[in-house]
């Protein structure tokens, strides 16, 4: 279970002014479920996911992984949690531009502690699942936006962390590929993982086990 407790996020708008994205927001994401976080743009869905993935410290509040508080002041502990507990896929495809698809995926597994002997097989399996096997030896900078998005997702899935958090994972994908991605996310949840996605995609929302409308919580 992943819990965000009374988290707040203020965005600086000028020298003396901050906009409150959300204030004292509490959310729970259950294990074994695919949870969709929905709401109109600008509500702070991405910020919520970033806080949940320990990518950004909240202005207030706490994050709990399996009941354990993540202390943002302890950088080593945060690094450890991010390496072994959480995988995060951003809306923008963040990849090592000079490396190949396989190298991008393997570096993620390195940090997660996946044994080197099994990395190649896991990488091949995940790429096959997301239909990017033919891209494994290609440098990612030449890939399309949708392909890069799937490489990011493949990197996150191959790490097999208990928590998988994705920001608009199907935004750049066609219907057929979206179906593959949804299947992969479901599979991760069925393995007992906590899968959270922020999305506007009706297909993904419909496929989710649980939907949280951030707009309703913010009222």
């Amino acid at each position: 279970m992943l819990v965000l407790e009374n988290v707040s996020r203020y965005v600086p708008m000028g020298r003396n002014y901050e906009r409150c994205l959300f204030d004292e927001l509490t959310l729970q994401f259950r294990s074994g479920e695919l949870t969709a976080l929905v709401g109109r743009s600008g509500l702070g869905k991405s910020s919520v996911l970033e806080i949940a993935a320990l990518e950004r410290r909240p202005d207030n509040g706490q994050v709990f992984f399996q009941g354990m508080s993540a202390s943002f002041n302890n950088s080593d502990r945060i690094a450890e949690l991010k390496a072994t507990e959480v995988s995060y896929v951003r809306q923008s495809a963040d990849l090592f531009k000079g490396s190949t698809t396989a190298e991008n995926i393997q570096v993620g597994m390195d940090f997660a502690g996946v044994p080197i002997a099994t990395q190649e097989a896991i990488c091949a399996e995940t790429c096959k699942q997301l239909d990017i096997s033919h891209l494994m030896d290609q440098v990612v900078v030449g890939l399309s936006g949708g392909e890069q998005q799937r490489v990011c997702l493949a990197r996150a899935l191959s790490r097999s962390t208990p928590f998988l958090i994705c920001d608009e994972p199907t935004a750049a994908l066609d219907a057929g590929t979206t179906a593959n991605v949804i299947e992969a996310l479901h599979a991760a949840a069925e393995r007992g993982g906590t899968v959270v996605v922020a999305t506007h995609d009706p297909l993904l929302i419909a496929a989710s086990d649980h939907v949280i409308n951030l707009e309703e919580l913010s009222r």
Binding site: A53, E55, S75, D76, A79, E80, L81, K82, A83, T84, Y88, D94, L95, F96, V107, G108, F111, A112
Partner: peptide, 15 residues
């Protein structure tokens, strides 16, 4: 810095 942030995102410790 992009690569460094990405590595931190994947769990790289400061050391």
């Amino acid at each position: 810095k992009e690569d460094l942030a990405l590595l931190r995102s994947l769990g790289a410790a400061n050391r």
